[in-house]
Design a protein around this nucleic acid. Structure first.
Lengths: 215, 215
DNA sequence: CACAAAATTAAACAAACGTTTGAATTAAAC
DNA sequence: GTTTAATTCAAACGTTTGTTTAATTTTGTG
């Protein structure tokens, strides 16, 4: 009973924080939308700040296991792994639009140094796994030398640029301004995947050395 | 006198909005840091919301002229234009870190539909100019077929991923956690430029057709 | 200097904020 | 069935919020 309600509050908070930001959401907003008494939020979480931390704790960090698994999988070629990587991140972000917004907008500003360090460490560990995947491709003479952390930024940044600037994204995708999550997701996901695979293939392929024919 | 003080308030507001968000900044914060009386903000701008709109009005939209100029320049090859594009955007964003944060975090949530539409239109017009540059390269058989809006997302998103997640960026760049703006900028700018030029060259080059040697 | 307009101020406003209280209700344990 | 603990509630707490007021000072003009 208690666990259900606790999680329900977190789900509602995720939606509101994602849409209106942490400072743009009041505890009363959350209580009303969740249909619980105002005092229950302090009762369960202690404070608004700790509610955010509980939310991050609940949602963050599950990607590491999957990346580690992908890294260790010896049945997949490095090229296959890059494709899987793209699919994994596009799906992950697009299926957690609100939470991703929170992480992107507020996580760095979270007052708790503990949470902030946790987020940085998660990102660094993910980067580590991806570094291994790419280095494996380089050792097998498939991938060329690239700036791996910047490439990781291109992967995540491309996705984020369309999840954060949604009204613009709707225009580009020829969707109505008020397209719902599902409509946006189903139009954006294949487009992002195709682009990112093409982009990373060209970027990584060892055949693509030397500068282009200057014309 | 009045114009000076008005602009000074806007500059201070930009800094605070950029660091703490719109909802995370009070008009009293702005007044205190700007050294002006609280009532002056209503006096000059009418409201906090209109102050944000005045800030966006002041800073946004100057990039269009530069892109148009770049587009029309016939002394530069399409490849040169791509390099210029990268340099332009990296410099522009890194020299306006706070304002870029505001645009990225809050602009889509601005209550004023007018401002929101203005921002979308600016982005669409910029996209139009860049589309022309790339199509020119395609007609000259230098560039291959790509998804231009998604590529634009990769360009802007890569930069944003390192301006928005700064503590993580400091780690990647081997900077202290508390690196100041200038230190961050001077380490990040050349790294971003080099990566994005390499990335876009590989992505655009017509020589890079076909899928990589699956291994 | 005199006068009107603009700029600045301290103080106050009502509303919204996060949080706490203490009593009332429900659930669990024996 | 009684007792104890966990949960829920309306109400209130003290701050902080954005904005306005009305008086005062400064500035520009004839």
């Amino acid at each position: 009973m208690a666990a259900d309600k606790r999680e329900h509050i977190l789900t509602v908070a995720e939606e509101l924080f994602g849409d209106n930001g942490f400072d743009g959401t009041s505890v009363r907003d959350i209580a009303q939308k969740a249909g619980v008494n105002l005092a229950m939020i302090s009762y369960y979480f202690g404070s608004k700040e700790k509610l955010l931390e509980a939310l991050i704790e609940l949602r963050a960090g599950y990607s590491f296991g999957i990346l580690e698994e992908l890294n260790k999988d010896e049945t997949l070629s490095p090229w296959d792994k890059i494709d899987r990587l793209v699919e994994f991140y596009v799906e992950k972000v697009l299926n957690n639009l609100r939470f991703h917004s929170i992480m992107y907008r507020e996580a760095t500003n979270v007052r708790s140094e503990e949470i902030r360090d946790r987020i940085i460490n998660i990102k660094l560990r993910n980067l580590e796994q991806i570094t291994k995947i790419i280095q494996d491709g380089q050792q097998k003479k498939l991938f060329r030398e690239i700036d791996i952390p910047m490439t990781m930024g291109s992967l995540m940044g491309t996705i984020s640029s369309y999840t954060q600037a949604r009204p613009y994204g709707c225009q580009v995708l020829a969707l109505g301004y008020d397209a719902n999550d599902e409509a946006y997701r189903s139009k954006l996901a294949p487009r992002l995947k195709a682009h990112l695979k093409q982009l990373l293939r060209a970027h990584l392929d060892i055949a693509n050395l030397g500068s282009p024919s200057k014309g």
